[in-house]
């Protein structure tokens, strides 16, 4: 069984190496052929365009009869991807897995998941709420994350893709929203006397959003702010 698994993984890696057209890469992370690093480019015409996304791949013992375990290493702002852990909510990684799927086809599915989010079956409730309430604001944040974490192009926040033309007045608020933060929280720490940009930077790093807030004590934030 293990031997068959090894042989199959080998073929899949070779298959990816030989196929230049798909732009999907698979590399070894450590000395185990069952712990891999997949990567692909963000799909065009989405907020993820231009970014390069890395995925941690763990191949279970009973592969291919059990699904591969995948999670994003690169932070992604997406309703079906946890903004904290990178966990992915995708049916084929769970009960819809089939042994005829391959690492390549699964990574391609992830790529297309970035094109078409499923906010009704969210992994990250906060992001999904953001997506449902304000698409343009969500896309700004996703683009910002792509730039910061995935090496995408710098978002032109003044004119974000022509989606919100001529709204210079909300540019200040945007900075907070784009980082995926709540304005009230930023204001709260700014009131203590820290620079606004610093506050945004630290809160973004701490992932000070949604349910996570309850886990991050104020002291911790202040401590980080003092260090910054």
């Amino acid at each position: 069984m293990s031997d068959a698994r090894l042989r199959r993984v080998n073929k899949e890696i070779a298959d990816c190496k030989n196929d230049k057209s798909s732009n999907i890469n698979i590399e070894l992370i450590d000395n185990s052929p069952f712990h891999l690093l997949g990567s692909f480019d963000g799909p065009q015409d989405t907020p993820y365009d231009g970014g390069h996304f890395e995925v941690d791949i763990v191949i279970p013992d009973s592969y291919p009869f059990q699904p591969v375990k995948m999670k994003f290493i690169t932070k992604v702002y997406h309703p079906n991807v946890s903004s904290a852990s990178g966990a992915i909510c995708l049916d084929i990684l769970k009960d819809a897995w089939s042994p005829v799927l391959t690492l390549k086809s699964t990574l391609i599915s992830l790529q297309s998941l970035l094109c078409s989010p499923e906010p009704n079956d969210p992994q990250d409730a906060e992001v999904a709420k953001h997506y449902m309430t304000s698409r343009t604001s969500f896309e700004d944040t996703a683009r910002y994350w792509t730039h910061v974490y995935a090496g995408g192009p710098a978002p032109t926040s003044a004119t974000p893709g022509g989606a919100v033309p001529g709204k210079a007045s909300v540019a200040v608020r945007d900075e907070v929203a784009i980082a995926g933060l709540n304005k009230a929280h930023v204001d709260q720490f700014e009131a203590i006397g820290f620079e606004r940009s610093k506050v945004i930077d630290v809160l973004r790093r701490l992932n000070y959003r949604g349910a996570n807030i309850s886990k991050i004590p104020d002291d911790k934030v202040v401590e980080e702010l003092l260090k910054a």
Partner: peptide, 18 residues
């Protein structure tokens, strides 16, 4: 971390030191 994502309770602050 991943478990807590799904529970969306943003207004409750947990006790410091848990």
């Amino acid at each position: 971390a991943s478990l807590s994502d799904r529970a969306a309770s943003c207004d409750l602050r947990g006790p410091v030191g848990a």
